[in-house]
């Protein structure tokens, strides 16, 4: 009896120990790092962070990126998921091709888009062939902030829409097809069915996708770093720079705490705003 009661705890023990060692301990250490200066509690690191030239810029850029990328990704993934639902044959193949970017690391994805967008990249070659430009255009320079931003958005959308798609496709498959059929019988056209039936019933999946994607988008780094270096400062990029370039892990930890706080806040907002009351669940 005693053995049986202990067994579940024994089985989850390895995962728990692993997470405590590699997640909780570093988290506590990071918090300590951020809020200490020479062994005393202090806000020096945060003051240093806020006083830095790139601080405001990196916050602005990160939010701008999140605001541009997330709605675009949700809309695209919704359209793609609805299209996949309509397929009879080849559905799995299309899904498989569409989620290939999931298997590519974000740094590699950044390098792919660098190869396309840099001075002598594929994009300029094509433009040159079409006679649209004379010589190489520097799309990713700090002097061209708009095209640099568009480049980063493109790479992020290309890289990370697939995870949203996977969540939404799974969610759509959970909705019994009779709901749509009943709506169709009772007079709803395709757009009305999508708005009044599919979208409300898909809300829990949209919520999960939004939380996951937003948290990851606030942590955006490698894609931006590959495309722009520090020409387009973002929060995690600044943490990296403070850690490795300025060798100040206190300020780097302060950035990490800030990113965590923003992510938590976003999650709480999504959970509140997109709540499905239990009585409205199927």
């Amino acid at each position: 009896m005693t053995n049986n009661r202990l067994l579940p705890y024994l089985l989850i023990a390895p995962a728990t120990v692993f997470l405590v060692l590699l997640f909780v301990v570093p988290l506590v250490q990071t918090i300590a790092l951020a809020f200490m200066d020479n062994g005393v509690a202090s806000l020096t690191n945060f003051r240093k962070m806020a006083g830095d030239l790139n601080f405001g810029l990196s916050i602005g850029n990160t939010f701008l990126l999140v605001l541009a990328v997330i709605p675009l990704q949700i809309c695209m993934a919704l359209v793609m998921a609805m299209m996949i639902q309509k397929l009879d044959k080849g559905r799995d193949l299309v899904l498989w091709i569409w989620i290939i970017p999931l298997g590519i690391s974000d740094l590699a994805a950044g390098l792919v888009w660098l190869a396309i967008l840099q001075d002598r990249g594929y994009f300029n070659t094509v433009l040159n062939m079409l006679g649209l430009v004379d010589g190489p255009v520097n799309w990713l320079s700090y002097e061209a902030p708009v095209s640099l931003f568009v480049g980063v958005v493109l790479a992020e959308v290309w890289r990370a829409t697939a995870i949203v798609l996977v969540i939404l496709v799974a969610g759509l498959q959970l909705i019994p097809k009779e709901y749509g059929e009943a709506a169709e019988i009772f007079g709803a056209g395709p757009w009305t069915r999508f708005r009044k039936i599919t979208l409300p019933l898909l809300k829990p999946s949209i919520q999960s996708a939004l939380i996951l994607r937003t948290v990851l988008a606030f942590e955006v780094f490698a894609v931006v770093y590959a495309l722009s270096g520090r020409n387009f400062p973002v929060l995690v990029g600044e943490a990296y720079a403070w850690q490795h370039v300025n060798q100040n892990n206190g300020v780097a930890a302060a950035y990490a705490i800030l990113v965590m706080a923003i992510s938590l806040a976003a999650t709480v907002i999504y959970i509140r705003a997109l709540r499905t009351p239990p009585e409205m669940q199927p």
Binding site: P176, E178, Y179, E181, A183, I185, F186, L201, M280
Partner: peptide
């Protein structure tokens, strides 16, 4: 109009 086997009454 139609009545479905699993009712298909909209939960939301």
């Amino acid at each position: 109009a139609m009545v479905f086997q699993n009712y298909a009454v909209f939960p939301h």
